[in-house]
Computed example of a mutant assay.
Amino acid sequence: MENHSSDSRDPAAFLSSIIGAPVTVKLNSGVVYKGELQSVDGYMNIALEKCAEYVNGQLRRNYGDAFVRGNNVLYISA
């Protein structure tokens, strides 16, 4: 039996370790947000600071802070 609390691939531990780091968040729609990860919860709701929104690889707008609802998230990359 594996001990999941020490599993280096544990998503909760990974997400906790990258708080404050620059991340890329891709949504199911294909829109990408790049910013500094401030918080994430068990539903994958994400708070970003210094956030920029990209559509088809092109910068669309900059946000100071952004909140992304978790059910829209395809992936988070550090």
Score class of each variant (00 low, 15 high):
Ser16Asn: 10
Val55Cys: 03
Val32Lys: 04
Asp7Ser: 14
Gly70Met: 03
Val55Lys: 14
Met44Ala: 03
Val31Asp: 13
His4Gly: 01
Ile76Gln: 03
Arg69Glu: 11
Leu27Met: 08
Val68Asp: 02
Ala13Asn: 05
Leu27Lys: 11
Gln38Asn: 04
Leu15Thr: 02
Gly30Ala: 07
Ser29Ala: 05
Phe67Gly: 02
Lys50Glu: 15
Gln38Gly: 02
Met44Gln: 12
Ser39Phe: 03
Ala66Lys: 12
Ile18Glu: 01
Ala21Phe: 11
Val31Leu: 06
Ala66Gln: 10
Ile19Asn: 06
Ser6His: 04
Thr24Asn: 00
Asn56Gln: 03
Leu59Ile: 10
Leu74Thr: 01
Gly20Phe: 07
Ser39Arg: 05
Ser8Val: 09
Asn72Phe: 12
Gly70Ala: 08
Glu36Asp: 04
Glu2Asp: 07
Asn56Val: 01
Phe14Cys: 05
Ala12Cys: 07
Tyr43Phe: 12
Ala12Gly: 04
Ser6Ile: 11
Val40Asn: 09
Ser6Gly: 02
Gly57Gln: 02
Gly70Asn: 07
Val32Tyr: 05
Pro11Ile: 02
Gly42Pro: 01
Pro22Ile: 05
Leu27Ile: 08
Ser77Ala: 13
Asn62Arg: 09
Asn45Pro: 08
Ala47Val: 15
Leu37Thr: 08
Cys51Pro: 00
Asn72Asp: 14
Leu59Tyr: 09
Leu15Cys: 04
Tyr43Ile: 02
Ser17Phe: 03
Ala12Val: 09
Asn71Trp: 10
Glu53Ala: 15
Asp10Lys: 06
Gly64Cys: 00
Pro22Asp: 12
Asn72Ile: 09
Pro22Arg: 12
Tyr54Val: 00
Gly30His: 10
Val68Cys: 01
Gly42Leu: 01
Leu27Pro: 09
Glu53Pro: 07
Leu59Ala: 08
Glu2Cys: 08
Tyr33Phe: 15
Gly57Arg: 02
Gly35Asn: 13
Val55Trp: 01
Gly64His: 12
Phe14Gly: 07
Ile19Asp: 00
Ser17Asn: 15
Gly64Tyr: 07
Leu48Cys: 13
Gly70Leu: 09
Asp7Cys: 12
Val25Ser: 09
Gly70Cys: 07
Ile46Trp: 05
Tyr33Trp: 13
Tyr54Ile: 06
Ile18Thr: 04
His4Gln: 08
Ala52Tyr: 15
Asn28Arg: 12
Ser16Lys: 09
Ile46Lys: 03
Arg60Val: 13
Ile18Gly: 00
Lys26Ile: 15
Phe67Cys: 05
Asn28Cys: 10
Tyr43Gln: 12
Phe67Asp: 02
Lys50Gly: 14
Ser6Val: 13
Ala78Lys: 14
Gln58Arg: 10
Val68Gly: 02
Phe14His: 04
Gly35Gln: 04
Leu59Lys: 10
Ser77Gln: 11
Asp41Cys: 00
Val23Cys: 12
Lys34Phe: 07
Ala13Phe: 11
Ala47Arg: 08
Asp10His: 08
Gly42Val: 00
Val55Asn: 10
Ala47Phe: 06
Val25Met: 06
Ser29Met: 03
His4Thr: 10
Ala12Trp: 15
Ser8Leu: 14
Asn62Ser: 14
Met44Glu: 06
Pro22Ser: 06
Asp10Leu: 11
Arg60Met: 09
Val73Pro: 02
Arg69Ala: 11
Gly35His: 08
Leu15Gln: 03
Asp41Trp: 00
Arg69Met: 07
Asn28Glu: 13
Asp10Glu: 15
Gly42Cys: 00
Val32Met: 03
Arg69Ser: 11
